[in-house]
Amino acid sequence: MAEAPTGVQTPASAARHAAQRPPAGLLPASFRVTSRRRETRDTFTLELVPVDGGPEIRFEPGQFNMLYVLGVGEVPISISGDPGRPSTLVHTVRSVGAVTRALCALRKGDVVGVRGPFGSAWPVDAAAGHDVLVVAGGIGIAPVRPILHRVLAQRARYGRVVLLYGARTPADLLYTRDLEHWRSRLDAEVQVTVDSADRTWRGNVGTVATLIGRAPIDAEQATAFVCGPEVMMRFVAIALQQRGMAGRQIFLSLERNMTCAVGLCGHCQLGPYFVCKDGPVFDLPRVRPFLTVREM
């Protein structure tokens, strides 16, 4: 008799004293805010380092962390920093609820809890050798920023690099310094558009989907990374396919109610997927059947 089939591999007494420390991912670690920068009226970028100088959080572009504010709660926030600089965590947070409001109100020196990183990554390495088209809308620029860091750090590995970014108004644009920097490069194309603007705005007005038709990419072999409100992503996916891109060349990052971040709480489901662990990044064919079903 090798072992009991009820899963009792150890004697009951040993099980009683078995270490109950949750594996990495279930218990937050303490991080200190080293910088807080106001991006827009309601959006801030925080930089965090481990309080105890503990192990840095290595992450892949597209992954997210769970940020916890003592006494308020925990929320999933995508990682927006440079994957080549994992010593500092960068998170851009928009104040839309109790926890994000508390996060945006943090000051330099304040301490938060961090679990992560979680979830699937943008297949940035797999896009090597081809054109990269990044399409972002609103706060959706935050989860794609690490793609640009990675691709521009290894610029020679890629074909043309294009960022199309849509926001509500010029005042809602995030990372304006980055945008200026990227735009000043001769080897990257940045196009920005807003939904409405006054006379002082000399750029594009219109939805980001309207920029796709003219994006300077070879649609047959490019990889598109798309992040923004779900409606916008649906329209962008249509425009990309009209451009001649196949579904498998298109990647989206989805947002659902991620509470545990490890596939155990059941909240973030979309059809057969747990968005927290099977996503948030999916290729279009995997999620296409569910994106147009209402209230899925």
């Binding site: 839309v96 809308g137 609103g138 926001a167 509500r168 809602d172 939904d195 989907a209 409606v231």
Partner: peptide
């Protein structure tokens, strides 16, 4: 799509 104000805060 522009009308939807998809980036607006609700």
């Amino acid at each position: 799509l522009q009308l939807l104000d998809v980036y607006g805060t609700v």
